[in-house]
Design a binder for these strands. Sequence first.
DNA 1: AAGCTAGACAACCGCGTTCCG
DNA 2: TCGGAACGCGGTTGTCTAGCT
Length: 417
Amino acid sequence: MVRPPCCDKLNVKKGLWTEEEDAKILAYVSKHGTGNWTAVPKKAGLRRCGKSCRLRWTNYLRPDLKRESFTPQEEELIIRLHAALGSRLYVLGLFLVGSQTHPTFCLSCTMKIYHTFMWSIIAQQLPGRTDNDVKNYWNTKLRKKLSEMGIDPVTHKPFSQVLADYGNIGGLLKSRTRIGSLNRDMKNSFMIKPEPHPPQPAIATEGFSNINNSRVMTTMASPGIEPIQENFFPSSNINQHAATCGSLDLLSQLQAIKLVTEASNYAGYQIISPQFPNQYTLSLSSPSSSSSTSSTCSTTAQEKTGLAFSWRDFLLEDAFLPYDHHPQGQDHIPEFESKDIAPQNHSGNETSAEHIDDDKNIIINNNSRVLSGMDSELLSYGIQASSSTESSFVAAMLDQENEMFSEFANLLEDPCY
DNA sequence: AAGCTAGACAACCGCGTTCCG
DNA sequence: TCGGAACGCGGTTGTCTAGCT
């Protein structure tokens, strides 16, 4: 890798920052503002790489950062969003991949797109927290905590269920996939807590006799643990990928990103179990949803745990339920208009800094990776913040998933590789 | 008291994307 | 259109500290 010019100097200092260095950064930023970080070391009189200066400012010196510990509410939000981004969005990705109407995305494209945004999306929902904060907190605390609860932090399913999944997968998986990573968490769990896992909701093991390819694939490729994932989804530039894949233009990428971000908001509205529709409904405290922040977390759960939520909340049962476990009459497939997904322009010429989707009045800034107006977008894709629609959305995705895996062999032989 | 270990978190690294001349 | 520079991200490593033996 070629180092940036500001980092070329041999005498660039590394390691922990001193108060004196911090003061120089603060003085510089207060005078000149942020930006052009490569020039900062020279102008501020620092022997640091500009990249390090930016990182120091972003992760530590910014005045709006919180220094105190994560609150239980923040913890809850992180887990919920991680669950949403890590599992539900995967299902959404499968919807895109599996869509017969919009064969725009290969599996790797979809995975890469949303995996790229996970920590930053979560951090955006936590004022005063950086993605680095959230990531560290997840890796050091929450991940272990979930494991100790007998919950796989990758799939947010009970380990018993994950193990059963793999047992049923049998010889289907010829790739190394994610099993090694999952085992790491399971091993931690079992070593720390050899006694039986706490009782799981009945739903946790329901429907297991009905393992199908979709479940196999879902488990295999859930995001969250990366090194193994790389085996399955080789790191590659999306554009390069698209060049060989021949199916992912810029607009489609943006639309996929948009969908992913919308879905994170969607998850904020509704992360519920159809099994306990009242017990597990929770509205998150995102600014856009503040008008409807009535938490309907189970009072039963609160009585038991003394917290405003239950760990059982973080099991993502419904996303993996067999299709026929969803309530009847909720099998409506979201109406993804072809114009929303299908490539509009295969020339790849859309290089403007902002893409304005006139149909949706949404501005996608392709530099900052910030997407706005998501909440209002939910309805436009048929993703509605109502429990009934939520279930139908998942059901629809699963339906598409099943369709896709009827062509499972084709997916495994992804032409992108 | 010394050595070891695990946890917390700061910082670095490599890579992908975008900007801009 | 191209290539270098800049930026931003997630993953990983390094450092410090508290607790334990």
